[in-house]
Each structure stands twice: as C-alpha cells, then as structure tokens.
Amino acid sequence: MPEPLPLHATSGPDAVLPDALKGHWVDTRAPRAARPFLKLARIERPIGWWLLLLPCWWAAGLAAIAAGRPYPDPWHCLLFLIGAILMRGAGCTFNDIIDRKLDAEVARTRGRPLPSGQVTAKAAALFMVALSLGGLAVLLQFNRFTIVLGIASLAIVAIYPFMKRITNMPQFVLGLAFSWGGLLGWSAVFGRLDPPAYLIYAAAIAWTVGYDTIYAMQDIEDDVIAGIKSSARYFGDHTREAVALCFGLATALTAIAIWLVGGGFFAWLGLAAFAGHLGRQVARIAGASAPEALMLFRSNRNAGLLLAAGLALDTIGRALLAG
C-alpha cells in the first residue's frame, strides 16, 4: 500500500492537499468550518475552473469574429466565469462522493474532505445541490437553446466518475464534459450550433485529453494499486507521443475554426502562441517527476489564455480599424 502522508497533510480542516496552491486563502483565512466545503469545490485549486472556462471564452471569441462584433460579449464572459466556478465545484463534489473509497487508496487524494472524514456524504450532497442551483441561475440568463444545451451536459458529468473503473481513457469523457463551453460560447451568441462551434469543441476535447494525461502522470503507481484506469497508464512509455498527438489535433482543429470564421492576424498569432506553449510542454514531459507534471498541467491555463486573448484582440483590432 502507498506510504501514508504526514498527519498535518491528511486530516482536519487545516490539511493542505498536495496539489493545492500553497498559502491559498482557503487554507489561511477562510473560517475553519467552511474549509472542507471550499476544498470539496476545489476553490484552492483554481486551475480546474480555468480549464472549464477557457473553451467558453474561445467560442465567445470565435462567435464575435463571425458576427462582426467589436469584442466578445462581456456579460456572457462574466457569466461563463461564475458558472465555471460553480459547476466545477458541483462536479468535483459529485466526483468525490462517488470516489471517496478509491480516493482513500491514493496518496494524493486521501486527504480530501470525504475520505478523511471531514465531511459526510450527506453534507457533501447538499452542498453539491446548492452549487448546482447557483449554476442553474447563471444558465437561465442565456437564450433558450443555450439553456437546454447546458442542461444536456449533465448527462456526461453524471457518468464521468465511473469511467476510471471501466475504460482506459476516462480523460476522453472528461474532455466531453470540460469542453462543453466550446458549444455554449457559440450558442449564446447565435442561438444555434454551427461548424466552428463543433470544431472548437473537438479541439478542446483533444486538449483536455492531453493535459489531463499529464496530470494523471502523478498517480500512476497508486492507480495501479487501486485499480484506477487512466490514459497515462494506458499510453505508458508512449505518453509523450500521445500527448503530442492530442495537442497537435487541438491546434489543427482550432486553425480550421479560425479559418471558417475569417479570423485575422491576432487570431492566428494567438493560435501560434497556444501551439508554441503546448510544444514546450511536450518537450518537457519525458522523465517528469510528479511535481513537474503538476506544474506542466497547471501551465495550460496560460496556454488557453494566449488563444483566448488572440481571438479577443482580433475582434477589437478589426473594430478599431473599421472606426
């Protein structure tokens, strides 16, 4: 069995989980009674909601270019931000309820609130419902098509926690859920789905499989013991090549989407910066330790922001030239 972590790292509301940001306000300033619930929602690990949010912003940028708007809709972008934080928290809480026994067998996760006994399953379920209702309130601000589309994503979210038990590629199912914003960001503008939306959704799925494979590299030894399946285990010695393929596919699909909407210089510059960042990650995968894999995984926030910024600047630049 894995060696136990030190007591301060595995139990109590003051526990600092291995993949949490050090010195985060959840661990230093939040009321102690609230800390286990904030950790259930992964508030001290913001990379998750960033990765859920970025496909929304990509699609919003593409839609703004296609519609000839001077910039992506700020109200939509704000709603996507709030919704990403709430729904990522609800999804993670649901995942932890389902996985609490498996999490107890993995060194990196056994200190989480449920397996460590800080929160009961019932309390976690009530917390999940509250977060979901908040997410629903955000979703109701959009057009009817987007509301229905957003609700449809819950089917994928519901099955994801079980995928690591039955498939070697749970990362693909995660991608189906985490990339849904690529559809929502487009439908929020047009009230329908068009080829660029499907392309950016597929690109985000490939990106997700790539970065989450890097993330799974941290747990390979424990996953073998616990019987948890992952793409990192499946790809084995070919992980670097597999991630390179995923990132290359994400770049190619995004390029087609940009071409279809008539993207200009800044859109292509953003894509080039995105691709360059992904290439740097691939170059550093071989022999990466667990802390290095976590660092590479987290760096995908910056990669995604480069693309989002390029798409937004493309709309702004066009508006300035037209004015």
Rank of each mutant, 00 (worst) to 15 (best):
D212S: 07
D212P: 08
T213H: 04
I214E: 10
I214H: 08
Y215C: 04
M217V: 01
Q218N: 03
Q218L: 07
Q218I: 08
D219Q: 02
D219V: 05
D219P: 03
I220L: 06
E221H: 11
E221Y: 04
D222S: 09
D222W: 08
D223I: 04
D223F: 03
D223N: 04
V224P: 00
V224K: 15
V224M: 06
I225E: 12
I225V: 15
I228E: 00
I228V: 15
K229F: 03
A232S: 06
A232E: 00
Y234V: 00
F235M: 03
F235K: 00
G236C: 13
G236R: 02
G236K: 01
D237H: 06
H238T: 12
H238P: 00
T239Q: 05
R240V: 09
R240K: 15
R240D: 03
E241L: 09
E241T: 12
E241W: 02
A242Y: 06
A242T: 06
V243A: 06
V243T: 02
V243K: 08
V243P: 08
A244H: 04
A244R: 04
L245D: 13
L249K: 13
T251G: 11
A252S: 04
A252I: 12
A252W: 13
L253Q: 05
T254V: 05
T254G: 07
A255G: 15
A255Q: 05
I258G: 09
I258K: 06
I258W: 09
I258F: 13
I258L: 13
W259V: 11
W259D: 05
W259S: 14
L260Q: 15
V261D: 03
G262N: 12
G262T: 11
G262Y: 09
G263T: 14
G263P: 07
G264N: 03
G264C: 13
G264Q: 10
G264T: 07
G264W: 06
F265K: 09
F265M: 12
F265R: 14
F265C: 02
F265W: 15
F266P: 09
F266I: 08
A267G: 11
A267F: 04
W268A: 08
W268Q: 08
L269R: 02
G270I: 06
G270P: 14
L271E: 14
A272I: 02
A272T: 09
A272D: 09
A273N: 01
A273G: 15
F274N: 10
A275G: 15
A275P: 06
A275S: 13
G276T: 15
